[in-house]
């Protein structure tokens, strides 16, 4: 927690009326088109939270994520990362150390030709002494379970492994927060599982704040909080069971729900009193048992 100038407490990432316009200019540098990607967004993410951001392509979620690492600066409004305003240029490196970022394409974010060298890349950039680099690299490779591949070329790894290397590169900087922009979009199911369980472990065991952007609903059911974006706005916010109890609304936002949630929703529609927002097979089984027991009582 950070104490803000005027005394109120803010989370690790906080935005205030954040607005971002993509501006397209013609050859004479005149403004040709202005596209609003983020439209006055206010969010506040607490340290240690696992927040998932959902939304279809073009909903502004990636643009928002890039603000958290100061890759983009707000057109209007402010974003604070660990209490640091991103528009102050002296804060830049501290912000990037504090909030690491993992991107979609595993191939295009690995710089090193050997796994361990890539993991050390960020540390080299911020001038960490050699011995400390080795220590951090060892630790972070262990944390993502990639130590046995440390001497390998990234080109020889699977997609899931590459993403874990990318995560290790961020973890090595000892960030408080990791922002992952669709890290599983280009992976196969087993690669997706690898990455998600790594992320969860970092959140649970090492108390790193996670902000996960994804299209796969089954990846977010264990999040502490879900933020749904549409047209640059936050349109839904809440715990997973709350969000997934609104199947109709999610569908209208062109999003999916996990099959078990959809099945529960279908059963409700057909008159079975299953509660809304069922997220796991366990929950559904329990619900059906209750209904069955109630039926037998009569």
């Amino acid at each position: 927690m950070n104490t803000f100038k005027n005394g109120c407490i803010m989370g690790i990432i906080k935005t205030s009326r954040l607005l971002y316009n993509y501006i397209k200019r013609d050859e004479e540098d005149n403004i040709e088109e202005v596209k609003r990607a983020v439209d006055y967004v206010d969010i506040d993410i607490k340290e240690g939270e696992f927040v998932a951001i959902l939304g279809h392509n073009g909903s502004g979620k990636s643009t928002l994520a890039k603000h958290m690492n100061a890759l983009l600066l707000p057109t209007e409004g402010t974003i604070w990362i660990d209490g640091r305003d991103s528009s102050v240029s002296e804060n830049l490196l501290e912000i990037r150390k504090c909030a690491g970022m993992v991107f979609q394409n595993p191939d295009n974010q690995i710089i090193g030709t050997v796994v361990e060298e890539d993991v050390g890349f960020g540390l080299e950039n911020i001038g960490v002494p050699t011995e400390q680099i080795w220590k951090n690299v060892n630790e972070s490779l262990d944390m993502v379970g990639m130590n046995e591949y440390r001497k390998k070329s990234p080109n020889k790894l699977s997609g899931g492994q590459k993403q874990r290397v990318a995560i290790a590169g961020v973890v090595a900087m000892r960030p408080k927060c990791i922002v992952l922009d669709e890290p599983t979009a280009m992976l196969d199911p087993s690669g997706r599982k690898e990455v998600i369980s790594t992320i969860k472990k970092l959140n649970r065991e090492d108390n790193i704040t996670i902000i996960l952007i994804t299209h796969y609903m089954e990846e977010v059911i264990e999040a502490d909080r879900i933020i749904v974006m549409d047209e640059g706005n936050v349109v839904m916010e809440g715990v997973p069971s709350e969000i997934f109890s609104k199947v109709e609304k999610l569908k209208s936002l062109r999003l999916d729900v996990p099959q078990v949630t959809e099945l529960a929703y279908e059963l409700r529609k057909r008159g079975l009193p299953v509660k809304a927002g069922v997220l796991t097979i366990d929950e559904l089984t329990d619900e059906l048992k209750k209904i069955k027991a109630a039926g037998e009582h009569k």
Binding site: E262, E266, L267, R270, L272, I291, G295, E296
Partner: peptide, 20 residues
């Protein structure tokens, strides 16, 4: 599929009621 499963569960629940 979800539809098949929903139908099957509904049928089962109805059957159980009849059996009672």
């Amino acid at each position: 599929t979800v539809d098949e499963a929903a139908d099957a569960i509904m049928n089962m629940m109805k059957l159980e009621k009849i059996n009672d």
